[in-house]
Write a protein that binds this DNA or RNA. Structure first.
Lengths: 150, 150
DNA sequence: CCAATGAGTCTCCTGAGGGAACTATCATCG
DNA sequence: CGATGATAGTTCCCTCAGGAGACTCATTGG
């Protein structure tokens, strides 16, 4: 939890940040996405403190991003899996990867690649307009007040 | 600065978070993007503490996301504007908005709308494959190790 | 029986964020 | 000429969140 809650702001960015804006949350999401589903695996992979990991997982479950599922009853063991809502957040991670690859990867090149199953090519995501299908970057749009504006 | 630096990780998500992952940074970026460029305007609009705002702005300038530009020499006054690197980060914000609109906006509807200048329609961004142009979500790809993997 | 595994909980310490006052430079108004 | 105000920060103190690591508890394998 950050000091100041963003949730009250009439802004989808602030509200999204309220869900995954805390430190570690996006990396936890990334790990669960690539198949690191258990508490100890996550803790070891990230080097996060166990206390914070407990808090973050509980929050992400509460927000409907992750599902805490029992995979063994004796002894009781749980793993964390993405919900649909959480999987859509991973689209956001792919866009972050795209930016990080372009601006921070250096000459070593990108650490991971994505192969698009539909076409088989290694590719990255491009943002396009839902209406016309053309490229849609932040510099290609005008911002207007919407119905939910305060 | 978060407690643990993410920059050392071989992960474009972690490295991107290192640039804009701290609390407030994405909201500062949003404000600058929509034309809130001055220190006091930002401080009032966000309700952020002045100390933290100073730190965040300095960091974003250092990272090449914002440019600190003198717009008056007597008295000396500065404003913050996006660089190209920073503008590309705003693409990421649009994707966050998309997710926030879908999952957190509620019945009031989205607080802001984007009009795509190329086609004139109010629209949102869709992620597509850079190779084939088809929809490319996190569930549509396989993750492979890249050249920059550790 | 002992050690290991999985999944947390607890405690202590440090340092980042919040709040608010203080500073400095110039412009303008009465 | 002094008061006021805008702009852009600094500085101070205090609280609380994060880091590190030890401890817990149930169960299982050797």
């Amino acid at each position: 939890m950050q000091r100041t809650q963003f949730a009250g702001m009439a802004c989808s960015i602030a509200r999204t940040l309220d869900v995954i804006g805390e430190p570690w949350s996006p990396l936890i999401l990334r790990d669960v996405y690539v198949g690191i589903n258990r508490f100890d695996q996550l803790q070891r992979d990230l080097g996060i403190s166990r206390k914070v990991l407990t808090q973050r997982l509980a929050w992400l479950v509460e927000q409907g991003i992750l599902d805490r599922r029992e995979y063994s009853s004796r002894p009781v063991r749980h793993e964390y899996v993405l919900t649909g809502k959480g999987a859509e957040l991973c689209d956001l991670l792919m866009v972050m990867v795209r930016w990080g690859d372009r601006w921070t990867a250096g000459e070593a090149g990108p650490p991971v690649l994505y192969r698009h199953r539909a076409c088989g090519n290694v590719a990255h995501v491009e943002p396009v307009c839902s209406a016309c299908g053309g490229p849609m970057h932040a510099t290609d749009v005008d911002v207007l007040p919407g119905p939910g504006a305060r």
